[in-house]
């Protein structure tokens, strides 16, 4: 009896709570030298495992943040989800539908219009020959949100104001703006498409802290009003602490730990997460030496065997070098570490 009750209420659990579900996602890039060079130098193919078996879920209306060292694969995960790259392996389920299924094509196009992405590099992502108004209006036209020209212009002006620019800035071209102002234009464009799911790759790192606060406050307000879901990527852990519901830590193409924000910051489990939190710069200038993450960042071309962190990990043992740890749940935290699993580290 209880069983049936459970099955009925949980009939569509994914649909109800989870908006995005990523399962064992992988993306490799071939970076081999040309064939002739390989033959002469007798080298093999070289493959970057940019993303190597990543699984997580993002709940509707939540903010999931990805953090981790430069080059660990955060932007690649973002690009896979919006469909800019095809996965080498694994699946992405959006709103209950597998984006990789053969029949999902028309659905996928529909879904892609419900997502928008703010790119890490505001220079590369704005068309230099378009006026700002047209850049921002593009998603409005693409989704046919408004058709009347005057209404579109009014909406663009409103968006420009929301990101701290002026409606009059619409007549200008991207090169007439500073780096941070350009980033605000790309934020306005993303918001113009009225997305349900917004992927923000370093959205505020080009902005001064006061404008950053304005943008983050705006994003939170929009999230509250429209139940938006965010995938957020940032190197600024204080920003991540402030905006996120859940935080995932990536290392060398893998997700090594994810947990609810407070849990992760207060009780980090994975040795890498602990090091990352210790490396936060010291603003109070109390003279505390920041502890840089020790050791070399390994290459994703020849990643270490077993646990990819083992060459730098103070808790590594023989098992770590041989066997790849998988994500398991300990006290509400998903963590991939043998030491945690064996109880050597809590």
């Amino acid at each position: 009896m209880t069983d049936t009750a459970v099955t009925t209420t949980d009939a569509r659990p994914a649909d109800a709570r989870t908006l995005v579900k990523v399962d064992d996602l992988a993306r490799y890039f071939d970076v081999s030298p040309p064939l002739l060079n390989r033959l002469i130098e007798r080298t093999g193919r070289a493959v970057v495992r940019a993303v190597d078996g990543v699984s997580f879920e993002i709940g509707r209306g939540e903010t999931f943040s990805l953090v981790g060292e430069s080059g660990c694969g955060k932007s690649t995960v973002a690009r896979l989800i919006v469909g800019l790259y095809r996965p080498t392996d694994g699946s992405i389920v959006f709103d209950g539908v597998d984006m990789g299924q053969p029949g999902a094509r028309s659905f996928r196009q529909g879904v892609q219009s419900r997502m928008q992405m703010i790119f890490q590099d505001p220079y590369a992502s704005l068309n230099p020959r378009w006026r700002v108004t047209n850049i921002i209006a593009e998603p409005i036209h693409a989704r046919r949100l408004l058709t009347d020209k005057a209404e579109v212009n009014r909406r663009v002006g409103e968006l420009l104001t929301q990101v701290g620019l002026s409606p009059k800035d619409g007549e200008k071209y991207p090169h007439e703006f500073s780096g941070g102002q350009r980033q605000r234009i790309s934020i306005a464009r993303a918001l113009a498409g009225e997305p349900e799911f917004l992927i923000c790759d370093e959205p505020t790192s080009a902005l001064d802290v006061s404008v950053q606060s304005q943008i983050l406050n705006l994003m939170k307000e929009l999230q509250r009003s429209f139940n938006l879901t965010y995938l957020f990527i940032s190197h600024d852990l204080a920003v991540v602490y402030h905006v996120s519901t859940t935080v995932g830590v990536m290392y060398l193409g893998r997700l090594v730990e994810w947990a609810e924000t407070k849990t992760l910051f207060n009780r980090p489990k994975h040795p890498y997460t602990r090091m990352l939190l210790d490396a936060i710069p010291d603003l109070e200038m109390t003279g505390r030496q920041r502890v840089p993450v020790a050791g070399e960042v390994p290459s994703p071309i020849n990643p270490p065997s077993g646990c990819p962190f083992h060459p730098r990990c103070p808790h590594a043992n023989a098992r770590c070098a041989a066997e790849r740890p998988v994500l398991r749940v300990f006290d509400d935290t998903h963590v991939a570490c043998h030491a945690v699993e064996e109880g050597r580290l809590s």
């Binding site: 060292e69 430069s70 190197h235 852990l237 710069p281």
Partner: peptide, 14 residues
């Protein structure tokens, strides 16, 4: 000009 903007804290420190 913003040399460390796109970098994580440990590379930044470096």
């Amino acid at each position: 000009d913003e040399p460390t903007t796109a970098l994580d804290v440990s590379i930044q420190a470096q």
